[in-house]
Amino acid sequence: MSSVLAHGGDVAALTGRHLRHLRRTPEKIIGVALTPVAMVVILGYLFATVVEVKNTGGSYREYIMAGVFAQVGLSCIGITAIGVAGDLGKGLIDRFRSLPMGRATVLVSHTLADLAAAALSILLVAVTGLAVGWRVHGSFLENLTGFLLLLGFAYAMLWVGALLGMVMRNLEAISGVAALLLVLFSFLSSSFMPLTGLPGWLRTVAEWNPVSAVSEACRQLWGNTGPAASGSFPVENAVLVSALSIGLLVAVLIPLSLRVYRISATR
């Protein structure tokens, strides 16, 4: 019991460190929220005039909001990656490892603090969305579930970032890869367009993309789409599929990251 408390104290101390970083470098949150906020404006105003989405009860502006929120999760990859790589490069991880601390403490506190950044970014995007006319139409519980799914997805993506940061130590290279992942996974999904027009195999890939599952689930929970007519499994069971894929990602990524942490720090 006392060791659990001590570990909790370590995580609290290190998370406090990262939250201080966040307060002193607010541009970090802007970096995460900027692309999604720009997407709301660009897609909501420019594309909305030419895109007509079938099977949506609401407008295209309502349709894309869930996708934009999922994009916040993807852009979280970069912040954790850069934070972890920076600590490794400056020898801070060496110092932390020379302390009698739990093995997971460093990465757990990195991801917890960055989750706070993700939550703030989601809030920023929500405010922008409300300003352009987006609304949620679900029950309180449904609306809340949507946001919890988004936070869970962001948390999984933070661990992708931790892994990326440890494997690629170079900060410029990390920025490039993070940007590529952001574009690839958000556009190869139902975030900004229904997948009905895609050729067969590509459609399957895109439908099983966790980003599609998460944004489809949110749209359904928030009532931002019409009844799902195209009956493929991941679309009809979006909430289940998204929850399962987040769980699977976290279950694989956390032990893998901790393992890589042990190896990469001992190089």
């Binding site: 460190r17 400056k90 020898g91 801070l92 060496d94 110092r95 932390f96 020379s98 302390l99 601390m101």
Partner: peptide
């Protein structure tokens, strides 16, 4: 352990660096 490169957190103040390590120890 004091390393080749001074492993201090640049965004934290000197005092915060010390307190952080004190809490971790």
């Amino acid at each position: 352990l004091a390393g080749q490169y001074a492993a201090v957190d640049e965004l934290l103040t000197g005092r915060e660096n010390l307190v952080l390590l004190g809490r971790l120890l």
